[in-house]
Design a protein around this nucleic acid. Sequence first.
DNA 1: GGAAATGTTTACCG
DNA 2: CCGGTAAACATTTC
Length: 284
Amino acid sequence: MPELPEVETVRRGLEHFVTGFTFRSAHNLHPRVLKPASIAPLSAVEGSRIVSINRRGKFLWFTLDNDLALVAHLGMSGQFLVAQRDRPHPKHVRARFSLKRGFKSHDLLFSDQRTFGWLSVEELTDGVPQSALHIALDPFDKAFDRNAVIVEMKSRKAAIKSVILNQEIMSGVGNIYADESLWRAKIHPEIPACDLGVKKIESLIDAAVEVMGEAVTVGGTSFDSLYINVNGESGFFETSLAAYGQEGEPCPRCGTAIRRIAFANRSSHFCPKCQVKSRRKTKG
DNA sequence: GGAAATGTTTACCG
DNA sequence: CCGGTAAACATTTC
C-alpha cells in the first residue's frame, strides 16, 4: 500500500543497496510492466551506473550516469526486492536486474502482484522524468512552497479530501494518509476546500507532514534487514491508525465510533463528532 | 459469490 | 477550466 512514506522507505533502501552499482542485465518478465510511454526497453539501462535514487510524491526513479532514468511507480502492490539465496523466490516478479560494483553483485527484482505498478526508461528534465513532470512537489521537497499550496487549495471548490488527494496540487498523500491527516486536523472530508480557513488548511498540511513523517520513521527502523528494508512495508498501520480502516472502532480522541462513507469512488473514514461538516453551533 | 482494497489515467457529463 | 463520477488495469482477501 505504497503512499509517500512507503515509497520513501523503498527509496532509502534502494539508495543504500544499489547506489553506485552498474546494471549488468535487465529482463522484462511481464507484458505490462513497461509503461507504454517508455522511450526504450528495460535493456536500455544495461551498462549504466546508478548515480542516485530519487522520489517525487509516489514516483521513484534511478538516475543513471547517462541522462536517462529508470522510473518506477509501485501502484498498489509494487515492491523492489534484493534477491537472496536463502530466501524463497518471490512471486509475481515482473522484472529482474543484475547489478554489480567491483566484486560485489546482486539481483534486484521488481515484484507486483496486481500489476498497477510500472517501470519505464525516460529522459530527465531538470532531473525529473517525463512521467513525473505534472506531479506537484511533495511537502518533504526542499522547494515545497507551503503558502502557495495553501492558496491553491483554498481556491478549489472541490471537497477537501479530493483536493488533498490531488497529486497536481501537493503530492504524496493517498487514501490512508488523507483520512489520517483529516482526522488529526479535525476536518470533515466533504467540506469544500474554499470554505475552510487558511489556518485550517495549514493545520491539514502540517498534519499530513506529521503523520507521513512518523510513518517514514517507523518504516525506516528496519534497516538491519535487507528484505524488509526495500519491500515497502512500514509496519506503521497496525498500531497507529486513528481513522483509516477503523469503522466502528472508537475515535482515539473522543470515543465516538468512526464512520465510513463511500466518497470519490473510495472509502473515507472519519469521526462524526470531531470532524463535523457544518460549523453550526449546538443550541444552549 | 460479491465487495472492497491500494493509485493513476482517461473518459464523459454538467 | 473545474468538478464529480466511473471505468479501466489485476488479484487477493474477507
